[in-house]
């Protein structure tokens, strides 16, 4: 049975999935990126290696997420794709009839509109992080609730209060204000969920025809409060797939499978034991002043990223720096 590796390196979490050719998950990992995507991927590979041994054969690798170019170069990706396409592919695999995908991650949120199995429209949050995972994380911390319990506490609400959700700064001060008026914690939390859903629907979802079946993907889908708030606002059922937080990685794996690769570029799980370093510099070749990143594995230059003109992609090119 062929195996495909999908990696989704986002701002907050790094997700890794290995799937078989039918798209079934063999292993799925959810790790914190914590500002160091290379280390996060290495941690993930270490876990895979200790479970399956290092000679696990991979037939194709897909990478997505905001660090896709860097990680793609480090692991030797066959396919490097944007998150929107990856999420759409995974959603369609899970439910071929899906018409709407709501995806809320650490720092951005998206809506993908699908008709007859193809993406026909999408949108991403443009200016503000209100409603994304990092903000919920921060508020949970401030209220002293572990983020894992956020949803359950919120669902205990009996009289949700109205919170201004247009902007994270206003939302936070409004929550403090409501606390000081003596509202219950759960009422405030569910009020926050409703505010974020309102904000999502009027910004990201503006002008989009949201039809069922609707899938809710991304880390925030773990929050039952948000799910219920969406269901109430839209008046329809919201489906949270079992691997909601891994959908990006699964999509990347599926894209690698679709690409029909004869021989994968994958560098293997052994890169966990290797010394991977990056060094950046500013190219002064023209007025673009591109920030070039050199990627070294065991001191050997393996890839260069960031140049616009293409000359740095030739690894032999090495003027006196």
């Amino acid at each position: 049975m062929k195996k495909f590796l999908g990696i989704d390196v986002g701002s907050v979490s790094t997700d890794i999935a290995i799937i078989d050719e039918k798209g079934n998950i063999i292993i799925g990992l959810y790790l914190r990126t914590a500002g160091d995507p290379i280390k996060a991927v290495k941690d993930g590979f270490f876990k895979i290696k200790s479970q399956f041994g290092s000679d696990l054969k991979i037939d194709g690798v897909g990478v997505t997420g905001s660090a896709r170019f860097l990680i793609g170069a480090v692991v030797g990706a066959d396919v490097i794709k944007n998150e929107i396409t990856a999420h759409a592919v995974a959603g369609l695999h899970y439910n071929p009839k899906v018409q709407t995908i709501i995806e809320i991650g650490g720092q951005d949120s998206k809506i993908i509109i699908i008709r007859d199995g193809i993406v026909v429209d999408f949108a991403m949050n443009s200016v503000c992080a209100a409603g994304t995972g990092s903000f919920l994380d921060h508020q949970a911390q401030r209220l002293g609730i572990p983020i894992e319990e956020f949803g359950d506490v919120a669902l205990r609400a009996q009289k949700p209060v109205r919170i201004a959700g247009r902007c994270t700064v206003f939302a936070e001060s409004d929550m403090i204000h409501k606390q000081q008026l003596g509202h219950k914690r759960e009422d405030i939390l569910f009020g926050l969920c409703e505010a974020l859903v309102r904000n999502y629907l009027s910004n990201v979802g503006r002008g989009k025809e949201i039809l069922p079946p609707i899938l809710f993907q991304g880390g925030v889908a773990a929050n039952k409060g948000i799910k219920v708030a969406f269901e109430r606002a839209l008046g329809t059922e919201i489906i949270v797939p079992p691997y909601f937080s891994l959908m990006g990685a699964i999509g990347a794996g599926l894209l690698a499978q679709e690409a029909n690769i004869r021989k994968s570029n994958f560098k293997g799980f052994d890169i966990v034991d290797q010394d991977i370093t990056t060094r950046g510099f500013e190219c002064k070749g023209c007025s673009n002043l591109c920030e070039i990143t050199n990627i070294f594995i065991e001191g050997k230059l393996v890839a260069r990223l960031g140049g616009r003109c293409g000359k740095w992609e030739d690894l032999e090119y090495n003027p006196s720096l």
Binding site: S66, K81, N82, I84, T85, V119, F122, M124
Partner: peptide, 8 residues
């Protein structure tokens, strides 16, 4: 990301 997804 937006341009790539749009083209896809």
């Amino acid at each position: 990301t937006r341009i790539e997804a749009f083209i896809d």
